[in-house]
Nucleic acid binder design. Sequence first.
RNA 1: GGGCAUGUGGCGUAAUUUGGAUAGCGCAUCGGGCUUCGGACCCGAGGGUUGCGGGUUCAAAUCCCGUCAUGCCCGCCA
Length: 623
Amino acid sequence: MESPYLSVSRKIASYVESAAKSLGYDAAGSIDMMAISKASGDMSCSVAFKISKSKGEKPDEVADKIAKAMGNVAYVKSVSTENGYLNFHLDRSAFSEFVIRNIINADMAKVSDIGGNKKILIEYPSANPMHPIHVGHLRNMLIGNSVAALHDICGYNVERGDYIEDLGLQMVIAIWGYLGQNNKPDKKFDHWLGDIYATTNGMVEEPGFRDKISELAKKIEQGDTVETVIARELAEKCVRAQYETAASYGCYHDVLIWESDIVRERLVEKAMDMLTDKGFVLRPNDGEYKGCTIIDLKSVKDLPSEFAGLKEKVKVIIRKDGTPTYVAKDIAFHMWKFGMLEDAFKYSAFIDKQINGKPAYASGKSGMHMDFGHVSEAINIIDVSQNYPQALLRLAFRQMGRDDIANGIRHLSYGRVELEKGTLAARKGISMENTADGLLQESFERARGLIRDRLKLGEEEQESVARSVALSAIKFAFLKIATEKWITFSWKRVLTFEGDSGPYCQYMNARSTRLIEDSGINVKDMLNSNIALLSSDTEFNLVKAIARLKDVIEKACVEYRPNLVTEYAKDLAFAFSRFYETMPILKGSSPEEKKARLALVFAFRSAMRTSLGILGIDALDRM
RNA sequence: GGGCAUGUGGCGUAAUUUGGAUAGCGCAUCGGGCUUCGGACCCGAGGGUUGCGGGUUCAAAUCCCGUCAUGCCCGCCA
């Protein structure tokens, strides 16, 4: 589909440029078309200020002269000037027709093709497999889900990946706790295991406990012990429970990579060999780091600012005892992502059918080779506290001479989710109201209460509508906040169904659906109507909002910013609501007006459905 | 000590990357709208020295310098 604003503003810009040229001004490169004028007119341009500076003439005089020198431009009705600005007033009929026909004829599943089918892997939420998903992971998951949807709709070949860290101290602690008790799970497995983990973690400071833990850790690391098998089984059960939560939020994945598989397949060794060849990692024969594999940052030229304050400019990546650190595994993992380690894993279906109808595959001991990875861009959705290791990761590829990979790794760093009281730490236990499951349950109950006295529907449909509304409130509340900001989580803020919210957007969509259904007019007749009749302020404001769709989506995709889409959906919904309040559509309009307005309603609904789709919000027909 | 991020009406936020006109929106408050195409709605009012101080510019929430506050990171944890 075309971008109405872009194509019109380009035309205007070229006319402005030639008008300026005919007056002896050189405006090339300094014309900034402001797509939407805040003051007067529909679009505006401030080029007169720049010209006035070099020519010594007053801005408003320059603007006047340019306005007079301009010929007719398509979709522009008139040009005026004010305070040095050129203001362009659109031809409402022509522009509305352009926008509405454009959107109704477009393939809304592929709004843009800027992706060029480029393959990217988006990694999220990578929650540890020993506790339920809490509201911090939920933020991660929802950002990942919408960034993935944005890339889908912009023509990328998207792979949704999840990294399961089933090794490491936290997992060992959970297993130790699990082995030391005989109870059977009395609730959802991730919640149950999370409690055990938190309790066991509370014992860490007790005398002698650490020794017991490290003994268990060794058994697990040996790779073929009973403990190893138990560890994996336990983690898998927990991840399956977490994926139930993900599914209830409409999220799914293509592939899960297990940390233990990276270790078992000896990918770290392969990665280290490649890095040693490039001279980036060293294995000192003496001194403090004897026996380790290290990165010596002192020898790196143009060290990025992230590393400026390091006390020791040395980073150990393989310990003295031969075990790899997190960073070593992450480097190997990213070599896999970018196809540097051929056929590293075998895969089998971990979940046979997700809500998208497809399996989620997971790496494992057995299975078949598949074509995951081999991407040219990796988006890692990881919270801001990991800026440093992510920088180190990019540096490793840069030092290998793989700037393409270093630049292809994008750390989408989001701000942490805090609680009003206390911190959100799984090791201290997660109360139900801070889990994704608990939040959804509460939201669902509130939504159901609202719907009961509103909708005359069967119990089953009421539940499904309530679930959609509940989810939309939560998703919108999380996604409307710019990713880099931290959130202080409170139920009150998340569970809102009014105003600037998901349910408000859904509500406007539902209204538009009812209008279309009740009209009994088919889309073809709407399209063949006299759209030129749409010329009132509220009608045209809605047209202008619809016209922004493609520009907003592309920008949100390129900048990894879902909140641009929530902002847009909100604007769109308000524009529709005002139109709806002021303009008669089915009643009180002439047959011709009715058809034209319905065409506008239809175009609105397309734009709204597309926006809601990116946010992972159901576009309900009634609610 | 160093690095990174954040700071916008009572609360929550948008615009900052790419400097443009009167800083947009929601909640809350106050006042309206005969719930007649669905009131999860609409209209209006009050509420802001964009943390603070300088600088650049015709123009600064936005860019530069300084400063304060808060948070995170700088480990042979992950």
